[in-house]
Write a protein that binds this DNA or RNA. Sequence first.
DNA 1: TCCCAAATCTGAAACGTTACAGATTGAAAG
DNA 2: CTTTCAATCTGTAACGTTTCAGATTTGGGA
Lengths: 373, 373
Amino acid sequence: MYEIETGAICPHAHHALTGPHMDEHTPDTPVDETEAGPDQGRPTLKTIAFMTGLGVTTVSRALKDAPEIGAATRKRVQMIARQIGYRPNRAGVRLRTGKTNVISLILDTEEQVGGFVSDIIYGISEALAKTSYHLIVTPYSRNNDPLEPVRYVVETGSADGIIISRTEPDDKRVRYMIEHGFPFATHGRTDMGISHASHDFDNYEYAAQAVRKLASLGRRRLALLAPPSNLSYYHHMRDGFADAIAECGLTEIPINGVTLDHSIQEVRQKTAQMMRRELRPDGFVSGSGSSTFALVAGTEDAGLEIGRDVDIVSKQSSKLLHLLRPQIFAVDENVRLAGFELARSVMGSIAGKDIASLQTLSKPGDAFQDKQG
Amino acid sequence: MYEIETGAICPHAHHALTGPHMDEHTPDTPVDETEAGPDQGRPTLKTIAFMTGLGVTTVSRALKDAPEIGAATRKRVQMIARQIGYRPNRAGVRLRTGKTNVISLILDTEEQVGGFVSDIIYGISEALAKTSYHLIVTPYSRNNDPLEPVRYVVETGSADGIIISRTEPDDKRVRYMIEHGFPFATHGRTDMGISHASHDFDNYEYAAQAVRKLASLGRRRLALLAPPSNLSYYHHMRDGFADAIAECGLTEIPINGVTLDHSIQEVRQKTAQMMRRELRPDGFVSGSGSSTFALVAGTEDAGLEIGRDVDIVSKQSSKLLHLLRPQIFAVDENVRLAGFELARSVMGSIAGKDIASLQTLSKPGDAFQDKQG
DNA sequence: TCCCAAATCTGAAACGTTACAGATTGAAAG
DNA sequence: CTTTCAATCTGTAACGTTTCAGATTTGGGA
């Protein structure tokens, strides 16, 4: 049934198949509209038009429940369409309307965080599953200009909406998309005085709770392993950390030179260095699971023990931390949910929905899992 | 410059923008071909045709280096195209030729393995970066029919080629795609007497080497934590394991009821159970990093110690295992490379290249990283 | 001088869809 | 018995591209 279809898709079979394709148009006799020829290959509006005896316009409208089509006709057309498994040709729609039915997820391919990308993709997929949207992944390297992939998608119109992460307080990608009226949603918030679709994890709250937890354990000198300072959530996390430090009357031991973006080796080394010093932290707040692996390793390199000499509170997106060291206090960040929300947001943005409804903030939950997970 | 473009993409702006779009056709005067109107919005072939004074056909051919175009014209057209940033409209090409310039990665959204998906996507992206291909992710749930997403892509022609994983020895998706002449590449091999594009990690070799390593450590009773038995690489891994067991004169302690697909909790529990028995294994071969986390936890639940009571050899795609327990012997599987190779393979398949050149097997390398990683 | 072939170039048609501007009904209103 | 109007339906054109079947020019050979 779909032979032509697959043929048409397989380039090396082009010449063989495009020849006898729809040979209703014999060069001598002019086209007779009433005989649209036997349907072959994938059904189109023309196929249905032929089967129902209607015009393609009518069929097109009937399928999208236009009001000017009789109820009987509408039902008849839709029935046949379902029967023969009609699917609108995406290229046709896209060419005609400019609507691509595609969401582009723009990804940093240097991303360290294991599982982050999988989860966000699964979440997006879940939200897109019942819609006509497809998900396309547009990668870029952190070394290059992050604006470039955005510009590419906007300029070539290869998607109807964009999802970005690694959002900055003053984000030029956001500015660009706003200026071009292009729908998008950001993972993380901005601080540009502009309202736009976004989803974020409440890192302020997380860091504050983490500090309080450590304070309640009697820890006094805390260190924060934070994201790079250009990212929005650096500030949230840092503010939550600082506020709670002040609130609890603790002191901060700054970690210089490494962030969540650094390699495990670098973090491990830096941690070991720090933990061998006189005035070392007795508590860590960590922004990501994989970095916490390095934190633990570095701490133990220095001969110290988690839970005894130092406590760690860490975010995680997978559930591995309490297997690494059961003493770690792990807070789950549901990245799959983030993906889901981001997809909903960007679709809402495309549909022109009210922006207020497209901004969500995920709370850390009461998930300070204790020694047993 | 791209205002029209973005407008055309943003559905809620349609009506506003399709009106004054290219108003060269005034209803009274017939079209004068020589005045193609001022180019606005995204440049098309028509734009270039107007600028050069050539026909669109000529421009189209000039851009693809057709031989029947004069060298001077060709250069002139290409120069202008570059100048004004011409990009062929994907929908136009796709509608006309049937070529989508899209590769579909079909993903099981139940996937446990953290980082696996990210890496394979990064690898694919890398291979696609310099081409005109886009990557689209087509998800499915393991509970549903795995053929369904494949059928969807083939029937709707939403991609030129497909990449699948979780390949089975007798894989109905492979059969389906072959029957429909649809280009694809599989992550993992089949055993159907059909030759097709694929990439695989040599799990036979991995398991055999793992067993020999454990044997060299004096371990005698080995257990294999294997993939589910329907997958191809189950057999490879199991055969390598069994052959080396025989070769070294060791015995196998079978693990029943859990596979790499099972949750960490399940594996952990099962492992603990097993390790409390009289005749427990003194060596593990594990097929994935995250499962090894569970293996370690379960072993320690039973009061045993890695490196003393039992040794573990495990594959990993991230580098976390030696941070978990430095005693683990980890073998790296480069999933990013797998993605890269798969993308190359499927593109080769689309281009009709010789299949022999599209089959690659990645060797485990000499990477039996010792206690220090 | 004429003709033919090669070298360049060209318009028309088509891919499948939707928007526009009617066309065709039947029935209600005058 | 018209006229009008709403309710349905329809053909044409257009989106941007490539293919087909020429058209035009040039130059060489006779």
